[in-house]
């Protein structure tokens, strides 16, 4: 309808960039796929497991929960991992996720999804309306 959300998701595309070598991508990386498969056979409560892969475990569920969203993974060697969101209003937002655990990365990805992609400015007012008065604006001339 308009720029605002009104039931339309504003985040169109999310790029998950990572490095397959660097230590700061540890949380995000596909890490021990074999081990992950082994654990999947058992009971799946391994949240505290170090090196638990964001891309292996959280990303598919995140994708599944957000079918409106195009999620792309991208390999950039020698860089810290980051998330890059493209919004419908042609804005983009980049979040660095170096040295983060998968849960933190998921939080930041969710934040990107939950945002409208507008520029972050200090709010002048917390109430935005097109029709400021229903019964008429009060002036000094109003007699009851």
């Amino acid at each position: 309808m308009q720029m605002a959300l009104r039931g339309v998701w504003q985040l169109k595309k999310l790029i998950v960039s990572y490095c397959d070598w660097g230590g700061s991508s540890r949380g995000i990386r596909l890490f021990w796929a074999l081990l992950e498969r082994e654990l999947a056979l058992g009971i799946l409560v391994n949240n505290m497991l170090q090196g638990w892969a964001f891309m292996e475990s959280e990303l598919p569920t995140f994708k599944e929960k957000n079918p409106q969203l195009e999620v792309v993974t991208e390999l950039i060697r020698g860089q810290h991992p980051h998330l890059k969101g493209f919004y419908k209003n042609k804005n983009e937002r980049v979040v660095c996720v170096k040295n983060m655990t998968p849960e933190d990365i998921l939080l930041y990805a969710t934040r990107l999804r939950n945002a409208l992609g507008r520029k972050v400015v200090k709010l002048k007012t917390r109430h935005v309306t097109k029709h400021p008065s229903v019964q008429g604006t009060w002036t000094t001339d109003v007699k009851f």
């Binding site: 605002a4 934040r111 939950n114 972050v120 400015v121 200090k122 709010l123």
Partner: peptide, 8 residues
């Protein structure tokens, strides 16, 4: 509509 962070 949005869960967002205010300006810093």
């Amino acid at each position: 509509e949005e869960h967002a962070l205010d300006a810093k």
